[in-house]
């Protein structure tokens, strides 16, 4: 119950932050990516603002053995760059550039994003459903 309560609070603060920062507005995201048009640097302020509290949080996490609710903190990740990391990120970036929405804002804007936003979210979930099989193919190709 406590886990769900804090998950709700965290999701809510995330959604509020995405709305306040303007990241639910595709013109701000595409304005950042459009280096040949009217370039909009807002996204850099958002990412910078988001990274600052997290640098502190990772430092606190490093000194603790468990999270506040008792379960393990995320283990360090092996610094391996594999094919699926690069291919997946390129696919994600291409879709992000075309529509101006990434997964967080796609969910945060559900209530006011209109039919276009709902269609994007449904297509995104379709892509997520297909991803494990695609990933398997990429991994097999990489080792062949």
């Amino acid at each position: 119950m406590k886990r769900s309560l804090f998950a709700f609070l965290s999701g809510g603060l995330f959604g509020a932050g995405l709305t306040v920062s303007g990241m639910v507005d595709t013109t701000k995201v595409q304005g950042w990516l459009d280096v040949f048009g009217a370039w909009d640097p807002t996204l850099a302020f958002v990412l910078g603002g988001a990274i600052l509290p997290m640098i502190l949080a990772w430092r606190v996490a490093a000194r603790r053995s468990t999270a506040v609710l008792g379960n393990a903190l995320p283990a360090p990740v092996e610094p391996t760059i594999d094919r699926s990391l690069v291919i997946g990120s390129v696919m994600f970036g291409a879709g992000w550039g075309l529509a101006g929405l990434c997964p967080g804002p796609a969910m945060a804007s559900l209530s006011f994003g209109g039919v276009g936003g709902v269609v994007f979210l449904v297509a995104m979930m379709g892509g997520m459903y297909a991803a494990p099989r695609l990933r398997q193919r990429i991994d097999q190709f990489a080792t062949a």
């Binding site: 932050g17 306040v20 990412l47 996490a61 609710l69």
Partner: peptide
């Protein structure tokens, strides 16, 4: 808004792990 996003991520990390 970015600080709020980072705060949300910090909460999820430190409280929920």
């Amino acid at each position: 808004g970015g600080l709020m996003i980072g705060g949300a991520a910090a909460l999820y990390l430190l409280v929920n792990g």
